[in-house]
Design a protein around this nucleic acid. Structure first.
Length: 229
DNA sequence: GCGTGATCATGA
DNA sequence: TCATGATCACGC
């Protein structure tokens, strides 16, 4: 019997180590990964929405917890699971990070939390067709991605456009339709949650917290860029 | 309560 | 079918 590796594993020391761990997940079912983690597979995700992502985090040794920084701080790499439908297209937008609603951030792309989180992302595709039982869904081949010049430019344009509205206190007229590849949507336990922001006149204002999300068309594009033509 | 992990549920 | 706005669970 080969010795069982420790579980959960410690944070990967190098990028290669992370990639090797991720490669071993390809083809595994969620049932297999849950068993290795000593967990039971929920019947559905309705009350376990982050379960798949957190299971993958544990298998890879992610350490950042809920801190606002990449999942592997030493490596500067963010981990994202990507739920795919039967066509291989993303079913959902991808949450990236909270939108800074009051000061602190300049609105400049460089150095922003969003830019740091998207600088290097380990995408882990996971089957997510509604017709597939959760336990039988398989993990796909991981992709360590950085935005290319075009993607970077588009992200930056959207970020600056969106943050300009935020900076001018025009949050109330900002909705999910803004942004070509990046959007801002509510991100809270529920719609009654309030957080501090600033109104158009500069006066303090309490609003529902927001998050940055990548549109499915954007993640579909980066998958195609790497796995197809 | 906040930021993380996300998916759900509804209307167009 | 699809995007938006709403919501669920966890660690601290």
């Amino acid at each position: 019997m080969p010795p069982s590796p420790p579980f959960p594993p410690p944070p990967p020391a190098t990028e290669d180590e992370l990639l090797q761990r991720a490669a071993r997940l390809a083809g595994a079912t969620l049932a297999e990964l849950a068993a290795q983690a000593g967990q039971r597979v929920p019947h559905d995700l309705r009350r376990h929405k982050g379960w798949v992502g957190q299971l993958l985090e544990r298998h890879l040794g992610a350490s950042a917890g809920s801190a606002p920084e990449p999942d592997f701080p030493q490596l500067g790499i963010e981990l994202k699971s990507l739920p795919l439908d039967r066509r291989g297209l993303p079913r959902e937008s991808t949450y990236v990070c909270v939108v800074p609603l009051e000061g602190g951030q300049t609105g400049h792309w460089e150095g922003s939390l969003l830019q740091r989180k998207l600088a290097r992302v380990l995408w882990l595709p996971v089957e997510a067709d509604p017709g597939l039982v959760l336990a039988e869904r398989q993990v796909g081949v991981a992709l360590l991605w950085s935005p290319d010049a075009a993607e970077q430019a588009q992200l930056r344009r959207d970020y600056e456009e969106l943050m300009e509205l935020v900076a001018y206190g025009r949050l109330e007229e900002l909705d999910a339709r803004f942004g070509e590849v990046l959007q801002i949507r509510p991100k809270a336990a529920h719609s009654r949650v309030r957080g501090s922001s600033v109104g158009p006149d500069g006066a303090p204002l309490q609003v529902n917290p927001r998050g940055f999300y990548l549109r499915p068309s954007f993640t579909a594009g980066l998958l195609q860029r790497h796995f197809q033509g």
